[in-house]
């Protein structure tokens, strides 16, 4: 049944998918806690312009996507502070604008990034995804206590002497890197599913912050592995299968709690 993983392209897809599945929910936990769930989605759209620019200038598109994503994350944080009362508005404007712009720049190449292409992960992409994944994970673990304290209560963290501005900037750059590595696997339109859905599932189960983080990552990895198998069987686009698997997991947990009568 699992002979699909004897193909080297499926092995690469599995490794890249798992890397993305670990990092996305880990970043997602902090994004959701800070009420920035929509943020990853917008960043993914903006980095699509970078991908298109890469295609036009014949530079490795994933790399230009990464650069755009990082720059956009810093720019958006600036915008967020300017328009604090309308932060969703600036996100909602940037996403479609970027998508439209990217389509004008390089239509055919951009299309393949919309829903991802786990099965076309070549070695070059795999190394970049693996490297970015390790880097993001390492910095996340090193900044775990700062991120928890700033996410829980930014004002209190600032008063206590936590370098809040520094922590926020590093976190935005990590988010941008995560989005850039994830969009080439699950696609621009589905990045936010992998960032947000496992976290929503974990919030239904976990009884601590550490638990929320752990369950989010495990749920993410399970969604990608099951999703890849399903996509192979049903001939679905990988990103689509992964997204639907993750949502099915969330519904299962919600349904179980309902039936078992577990009250909040």
């Amino acid at each position: 049944m699992l002979d699909m993983f004897t193909y080297s392209f499926m092995q690469r897809a599995l490794v890249a998918g798992i890397a993305v599945a670990i990092v996305c929910p880990a970043i997602g936990v902090f994004l959701v806690m800070r009420r920035l769930a929509q943020y990853g989605d917008t960043l993914a759209h903006v980095s699509l312009v970078g991908v298109a620019a890469g295609v036009l200038t014949k530079v490795f598109p994933m790399a230009t996507g990464l650069v755009f994503s990082v720059l956009a994350s810093l720019g958006m944080d600036w915008l967020r502070q300017r328009y604090a009362k309308f932060s969703e508005l600036s996100l909602a404007i940037m996403a479609p604008t970027s998508l439209a712009l990217a389509m004008v720049l390089a239509r055919s190449e951009v299309m393949s990034y919309l829903f991802g292409s786990v099965v076309t992960v070549d070695n070059e992409k795999l190394y970049l995804i693996g490297g970015l994944g390790l880097l993001v994970l390492a910095v996340l673990l090193l900044l775990y206590k700062e991120l928890l304290s700033v996410s829980f209560d930014e004002e209190q963290a600032r008063v206590g002497g936590v370098p809040v501005a520094f922590v926020n900037t590093v976190f935005m750059v990590l988010t941008a890197m995560t989005v850039a590595m994830a969009m080439s696997v699950v696609g621009v339109l589905l990045v936010s599913a992998l960032i947000v859905v496992p976290v929503a599932t974990a919030l239904q189960i976990a009884r601590s912050f550490r638990g929320t983080l752990t369950i989010s990552v495990l749920t993410g990895v399970a969604s990608v592995v099951v999703g890849l198998v399903v996509s192979y069987w049903l001939n679905l686009m990988p990103g689509v299968a992964v997204t639907l698997t993750a949502v099915a997991g969330l519904l299962l947990v919600l349904g179980y709690k309902r039936i078992a009568g577990i009250e909040e």
Binding site: M33, K145, L148, V162, A206, F209
Partner: peptide, 21 residues
């Protein structure tokens, strides 16, 4: 004050944030 009451942290985890700085 500013904390989100749905935040999934234990009492011990919250107290430990006081040591971060």
């Amino acid at each position: 004050a500013s904390f989100n009451s749905g935040f999934p942290a234990t009492v011990e985890e919250v107290v430990m944030t006081g040591l971060v700085a």
